[in-house]
C-alpha cells in the first residue's frame, strides 16, 4: 500500500456522525421506504444503517460522500431483506416459459388475451399524463399490490437499473424465474392502472 503523505485528514474533517440524523435521516428513510413498502421496517433500517456506519467509522475514508457511503450500507441491508423474501420462492423449481401459468390473463390454449383483460388505451400513451400527480398516486397504489418478491425484482430493475444477472445473484433466483416475474408483474401492474384510472 502506498503511504499517504498528505496531511493526515482526521475523521472529524470528513464526517460528523452527530449531524447524520439532521442531514441524512429523511433521505435514507425515503430511500428505504420506496424500496421496502413498510414504514416500521424502513425506520428500523435507517437506525441499523447508522449503527453499522458507526461501527465501521474508521473504514470511511471520505472517498465517496457521506451520503453515498450511508446509502450503500442501507442498500445492502435492503438486498438482505429481498433475499429473505425471495428464499421461499427460490425453493420451488425454476419454471420455463411454457410451463408458467398466465391463465388469469390469457386463454389457456390459444394464449391470446381474455376479453376481460385486454389492454385498452386509457391515456398513458400521451406524455401529459406522465407528469400527473394523480396518476402517480394510482401507480404507487398499484405497486403496493404486487407480491413482495415481484416488487423486489421490479424495484431493483427499474429503480436501480441493476442488470438481470445481478438481481438473480442477489435474490438467488434463476434467470427464467426472473423473466417470468418481470412479465407477471407488468401484466398485473398495467391492468391495475387501467382499472383504477378509467
Amino acid at each position: 500500500m502506498q503511504s499517504q503523505n498528505s496531511n493526515n485528514t482526521s475523521l472529524d474533517d470528513i464526517t460528523d456522525p452527530r449531524a447524520w440524523v439532521a442531514q441524512h435521516a429523511d433521505y435514507l428513510y425515503k430511500y428505504a421506504l420506496t424500496r421496502i413498502n413498510d414504514e416500521k421496517l424502513a425506520r428500523d433500517l435507517v437506525q441499523e444503517t447508522f449503527l453499522a456506519a458507526l461501527e465501521r467509522l474508521q473504514k470511511f475514508e471520505g472517498k465517496s460522500t457521506e451520503r453515498t457511503w450511508l446509502t450503500a450500507i442501507l442498500k445492502n441491508k435492503i438486498i438482505d431483506i429481498y433475499r429473505k423474501k425471495a428464499s421461499a420462492f427460490v425453493k420451488e423449481p425454476a419454471v420455463t416459459f411454457a410451463e408458467y401459468e398466465t391463465d388469469d390473463f390469457f386463454e389457456p390454449d390459444a394464449h391470446n388475451w381474455k376479453p376481460d383483460h385486454r389492454p385498452a388505451e386509457f391515456g398513458i400513451e400521451q406524455p401529459d399524463l406522465l407528469e400527473s400527480k394523480e396518476f402517480e398516486l394510482i401507480l404507487q397504489k398499484c405497486l403496493k399490490k404486487l407480491p413482495s418478491l415481484w416488487l423486489s425484482v421490479f424495484t431493483m430493475k427499474h429503480l436501480d437499473d441493476e442488470p438481470a444477472d445481478t438481481i438473480c445473484n442477489h435474490l438467488r433466483i434463476s434467470p427464467s424465474n426472473f423473466w417470468v416475474i418481470i412479465h407477471r408483474a407488468k401484466l398485473s401492474l398495467r391492468e391495475c392502472l387501467q382499472k383504477n384510472w378509467i
Binding site: L139, L143, H158, K186, R190
Partner: peptide, 15 residues
C-alpha cells in the same frame, strides 16, 4: 397498445 403502455409505465416508474 400493451407495448406502448408498458414503455410508458417504465418511464413513469423511473420518473
Amino acid at each position: 397498445i400493451f407495448q406502448q403502455q408498458s414503455t410508458a409505465i417504465n418511464r413513469m416508474i423511473k420518473n
